[in-house]
């Protein structure tokens, strides 16, 4: 097991629906075999643009998971290949809550996917609401030890997103980690690193933001 974290969020109000459906757009990161996943009946019930952005968020989450250990890794979405997606039983689109946080995904409607990247295998859980698409990736198909959260924010500019996502995750970390004066600094590769005072804390975290949503994921094991 790799000690890492990877998550990604897509604000559905911030996507360009028409452009997403254009072949020249989605074929930039979705391969032919991945497109064929959409033909399975439960997935085909999703709007196509949701399917496209689900795949994007899965690929980006896996990339973030890997990047913590390979700082020079370039995001090549076409090389992160989604081989299967098992849809949730009940895929009705729910109205997003202002804030949702949990440990694991039990009793939640998720799309569970399997991904290959080079010789490695990854798994992801994706939640799709009427407001956002949210994915958490892992290197085993067990998410019970992963804390995650999604929050709506009042402003969508990058500095607000950055401030709000830090506040959101630090608030959660402060409640589950026995260290004070927590802060987050991004390393040169853009990976968030947790500090307690001036000491680096061995706790992988993943941050995400898009439009009016911010999100975090981190494993319990590192605490």
């Amino acid at each position: 097991m790799i000690e890492s974290a990877g998550n990604d969020i897509i604000d559905l109000a911030a996507i360009n629906t028409e452009r997403t459906k254009e072949q020249r757009f989605y074929t930039k990161f979705i391969t032919g075999t991945e497109t064929s996943l959409y033909s399975s009946p439960p997935l085909a019930a999703l709007p196509f643009e949701f399917f496209v952005w689900m795949l994007w968020s899965i690929k980006e989450s896996v990339y973030k998971f890997m990047q913590r250990h390979q700082p020079d890794l370039v995001f090549s979405p076409s090389k992160i290949v989604i081989t299967q997606i098992a849809p949730s039983v009940n895929s009705l689109l729910t109205v997003p809550e202002l804030i949702v946080e949990a440990l694991g995904f039990s009793n939640r409607n998720v799309y569970n996917s399997k991904i290959t990247f080079d010789t490695e295998v990854f798994y992801a859980n994706t939640m799709i609401t009427a407001g956002y698409i949210y994915t958490v990736a892992n290197d085993q198909n067990n998410f019970d030890h992963l804390y995650w959260g999604v929050q709506q924010i009042p402003q969508s500019d990058p500095s607000s997103q950055s401030r709000e996502v830090r506040k959101f995750v630090l608030n959660k970390l402060a409640s589950v980690i026995d260290k004070g004066n927590l802060s987050i600094v991004k390393n040169q590769a853009g990976c968030p690193i947790l500090f307690s005072g001036t000491a680096m804390v061995n706790q992988p975290i993943s941050l995400a933001h898009h439009g009016y949503y911010v999100a975090y994921a981190f494993p319990k094991n590192g605490i």
Binding site: A14, N16, R19, R24, K28, W56, S78, H210
Partner: peptide, 22 residues
Amino acid sequence: NSANLVDIIIDAESKYNIEIDY
């Protein structure tokens, strides 16, 4: 936002009349 990277590729393709592969 990384979600806009594909938009930038598509816009560059249109502007320069080129095709940008994976």
